[in-house]
Design a protein around this nucleic acid. Structure first.
Length: 862
RNA sequence: GGGCGCUUAGCUCAGUUGGCUAGAGCGCUUCCCUUACAAGGAAGAAGUCGGGGGUUCGAAUCCCUCAGCGCCCACCA
């Protein structure tokens, strides 16, 4: 073995071997209980970012452990076609050649996107491999695959026939740059400093007028009414009269509608049915006609009269200027309000009246809420359930049609002759009216429509496949909280409705990775760190461990490269621990499972008891998805107990040649440490497994199951004595091996009988068992029931020793006061649990003992 | 306008049914190149757990309140 751990060298060699051996396939454990995670599919356009690295590391930790526990574990990988995002990327490439997608035409453009996907789309899957993620590539899926496309089409057709998908003319969110409709959640609201403009619309039949307030004065070009609240006395006599909309001189009625808030602005609202959802509702109740004055690219239409051809924001300025010139502008005041922006390109959204397809969500929502409410599905951490409920309860119908080309084309055909709408799986040959002139809907579906089917469409649904039967419902979903509404909620709604079962019982939600400036890591902010760069510097194992350590349940994860560096050093520590072991053990000597000593002596018993305790804790925590706590436990066990103490304890026996038990124990303990770290650090543990065990893959080995043992009594006393001697040397500036004499009073015979030579090995002292405190100057080292005394004759500056003891006395006294105070409190004794009281009593006893000893020594020093 | 999260060592953060003598990594101080590891070892300094109030035998942990920071949702035109 190399003396130093080289992540790059180690990580180059295992992935293809795992893959070739079929380790990542559930068939590895054919008789195991199924366990399945479906990956949140990254965009084909994308490259791996820190958020993926975190998300997928957590999934790999889960799946690798389950695999080791004998489950038929499947982690199904896939990618998402990401309609708008991907189309934008390819369009940008075309633009560089001076071309638009229209220049190519639909078919050629789509071919171009597929070509692009074939060459660039594989990058993300390569990166997933580099990270060591154990996905089953034989089952890889893409949302535009034949199978998944078939599922999408079937769902559309079925929901249409159930009346849950419909087509309608409504106000939707429109991005004038992407030139497509968007759903409500694809709109990001941003608080903007705008202006609230008050305009007076003169009465048609007399003097004066009615004042309306608006933040979007340009929309007045499309006004077809003015509305007031029916109960608003200020306007009581005005309802039914007409006003003339300035600039375009349209005569429109004043109507009364409940939707108007009398408190806002002037209490009267201009009604622009074609460009505002609220106005659209009012208009449909009041019989007002919509007039579209802004077109699909955000330019004023012919209906906008003299403003036709102007961009919407230029038109706003012109309209206000003209209103002012005409004396119609009453005021213009600063006004902060929130404005929707396209989540893909940040262009301000235009509410736009158009014919779109919608999913009627009402009937889907009810069971989806119920499943979470009754605990069939649980969110971890559960605080997200509340916002899930709130969001679901206020959902509006989902706009699913997109006016782009890259995606699942809507399976609807329109008869040119009679206008009949035909929705079907296969392209219809003709219409019932006899015509064969059919035209397919031009639109494609929202990308999230297909991702919403991912937990089952990837397993072969709607066919009744073996995978679907085995792995649906999935076992757990792991994803970021930012995607609950986009994805999680839709999988739940669609999953329950279409399959009759919940898609997964557990939803584990982690936070966002934040950069060291505390902000969300993102390309656009320029603070993103490429995980692959970090992997190059420190290795995938180190990055993975550092992310797991930092990912406290559901909290955001601050990324700091020092953590990765520390994780890499842990890898080095593991490396060298195994290297030490292999200097004493033969390959083949350490079995892949079991092999624990039958009736271990004290050292072995101690570390095995600690091992069993740690594995138990880790299991409990991982079962509860408390990744960072589980691996803090594993890390501390490995480093602070196994390496710092146990390896040191094996050195004397190994050297002295009576090492049967030490060899055996060292082997199984290190083997189990490798196993517990394998889910997080797959590469280095696999490499070290090959050196230590050399039998099969650790990736396919059984999860640790050490026997539960009682720890030997008073091991802590031994540790304290060793530490005490070391401290004494340090504080008196003595060399680490400066000879000292340690006398031990050990009435129960629990320490010194076991480890005389270990004191020599770990503390460089030779202990002498005595019955009473020795005479002469010595330093007391109290350790519970055992007392140690280090002779100070001629070696120690008694002044320094006095101050050391004074310090210890002060500390002991303060602790004693605190504990004694508790016990003096009758209510504490009466009400606290017996175990807590007993613990406190023992503590007081020990402290009194210690203090008496310290006092005696202090007096002895003069 | 609603809802949520955060505030703990110099820095970044852990700390699930209240029992903590409050932890980790990095940084800092002292000593040590001891044949697994100097990417290391040993020892150490360092915190009124944001402020105030309350519940309790006992609060970093539960309740109220104030302050600062951050996030999500929302058709007040």
């Amino acid at each position: 073995m190399d003396p130093a751990y080289d992540p790059q060298k180690v990580e180059a060699r295992w992935y293809s071997r795992w893959e070739e051996a079929g380790v990542f396939r559930p068939e590895l454990n054919p008789d195991g209980e199924p366990f399945c995670i479906v990956i949140p599919p990254p965009n084909v356009t994308g490259s791996l970012h820190m958020g993926h690295a975190l998300d997928q590391t957590l999934q790999d930790v889960i799946i690798r452990r389950k695999r080791m526990q004998g489950y038929a574990a499947l982690w199904l990988p896939g990618t998402d076609h990401a309609g708008i995002a991907t189309q934008n990327v390819v369009e940008r490439e075309l633009a560089a050649e001076g071309l638009t997608r229209e220049d190519l035409g639909r078919e050629a453009f789509i071919e171009q996107v597929w070509r692009w996907k074939a060459t660039s789309g594989g990058r993300i899957t390569e990166q997933i491999r580099r990270m060591g993620f154990s996905t089953d590539w034989s089952r890889e899926r893409f949302t535009m695959d034949d199978g998944l496309s078939h599922a999408v089409r079937k769902v559309f057709v079925d929901l249409y026939h159930e009346g849950l998908i419909y087509r309608g003319n409504r106000i939707i969110n429109w991005c004038p740059r992407c030139r497509t409709a968007l759903s409500d959640i694809e709109v990001e609201h941003e608080t903007i400093e705008g202006r609230l403009v008050t305009i007076e619309y003169p009465f048609t039949d007399g003097d004066g007028g009615i004042r309306v307030a608006t933040t979007r004065p340009e929309t007045m070009l499309g006004d077809t009414g003015v509305a007031v609240h029916p109960g608003d006395e200020r306007f009581a006599g005005l309802v039914g009269r007409t006003v003339t909309v300035p600039l375009i001189n349209r005569v429109v009625p004043i109507v009364a509608d409940e939707a108007v808030d009398p408190e806002f602005g002037t209490g009267a609202v201009k009604v622009t049915p074609a460009h505002d959802p609220l106005d659209f509702d009012i208009a449909s109740r009041q019989g007002l006609e919509p007039i579209a004055v802004i077109d699909e690219v955000g330019v004023i239409t012919q209906a906008g009269g003299p403003y036709a051809g102007l961009d919407r924001f230029d038109a706003r300025r012109e309209v206000v200027a003209d209103l002012e010139r005409g004396g119609h502008l009453i005021s213009s005041e600063p006004h902060t309000h929130s404005v929707g922006h396209c989540s893909r390109c940040a262009t301000p959204i235009e509410p736009y009246l158009s014919l779109q397809w919608f999913v009627r969500v009402g009937p889907l929502v009810v069971p989806a809420i119920e499943a979470v409410r009754d605990g069939t599905i649980r969110f971890i951490p559960d605080r997200w359930e509340k916002s899930y409920f709130h969001w679901m309860e206020n959902l509006r119908d989902w706009t699913i049609s997109r006016q782009i080309w890259w995606g699942h084309r809507i399976p609807a055909w329109y008869c040119e002759a009679c206008g009949e709408v035909i929705v079907s799986m296969e392209e219809p040959t003709g219409c019932a009216c006899g015509s064969t002139t059919l035209r397919q809907d031009e639109d494609v579906l929202d990308t999230w429509f297909s991702s919403g089917l991912f937990p089952f469409s990837t397993l072969g649904w709607p066919e009744d496949t073996e995978d679907f039967r085995r792995f649906y419902p999935n076992s757990v979903l792991v994803t970021g909280f930012d995607i609950i509404y986009f994805w999680v909620a839709r999988m739940i709604k669609l999953g329950i409705h279409l399959t009759g079962e919940i898609p997964f019982p557990d939803v584990v939600l982690h936070g966002l990775v934040r950069a060291d400036d505390g902000r969300k890591m993102s390309k656009s902010l320029g603070n993103a760190i490429d995980p692959l760069d970090v992997v190059e510097r420190h290795g995938a194992d180190a990055l993975r461990l550092s992310l797991v350590q930092a990912a406290a349940q559901g909290q955001d994860v601050p990324f700091q490269e020092e953590w990765v560096d520390a994780a890499r050093r842990f890898g080095n520590k593991l490396w060298n621990a195994v290297r030490f072991a292999t200097e004493h053990l033969e390959v083949g000597e350490v079995p892949a499972v079991g092999g624990y000593p039958e009736d271990p002596g004290p050292e072995a018993r101690w570390i095995l008891a600690r091992l069993a305790h740690s594995v138990g804790r880790i299991d409990r925590m991982l079962d509860e998805y408390r990744f960072s706590e589980a691996y803090a436990t594993a890390y501390n066990f490995a480093w602070s107990e196994a390496f710092d103490w146990y390896i040191e304890l094996t050195k004397a026996p190994l050297r002295d040649g009576d090492a049967v038990e030490a060899r055996q124990t060292l082997g199984v303990v290190l083997r189990d440490i490798l196993k517990m770290f394998h889910p997080v650090m797959p590469y280095v543990t696999e490499q070290l497994w090959s050196h230590l065990v050399g039998d099969g893959f650790i990736a396919a080995a059984a999860w640790p199951a050490p026997p539960s043992l009682d720890p030997p009594p008073h091991f802590e006393a031994f540790q304290e004595l060793v530490a005490g001697v070391r401290r004494l040397r340090a504080e008196h500036a003595l060399a680490p091996r400066h000879p000292l004499e340690l006398s031990i009073v050990d009435p129960e015979g629990v320490v010194a009988d076991w480890w005389p030579r270990q004191f020599e090995a770990l503390a460089s002292v030779t202990p002498v068992i005595v019955n009473d405190a020795p005479a002469g100057e010595h330093a007391p080292i109290a350790a519970g029931p055992v007392h140690g005394y280090v002779s100070l004759a001629g070696v120690v500056d008694s002044e320094a020793e006095r101050s050391r003891i004074d310090k210890e006395i002060a500390e002991a006294r303060s602790n004693l006061d605190h504990a004694a105070g508790k016990l003096a409190n009758e209510e504490f004794v009466a009400k606290a649990p017996a175990a807590v009281v007993a613990k406190e009593r023992a503590r007081v006893e020990q402290l009194e003992d210690t203090l008496a000893e310290l006092d005696r020594r202090r007096a002895g020093l003069g």
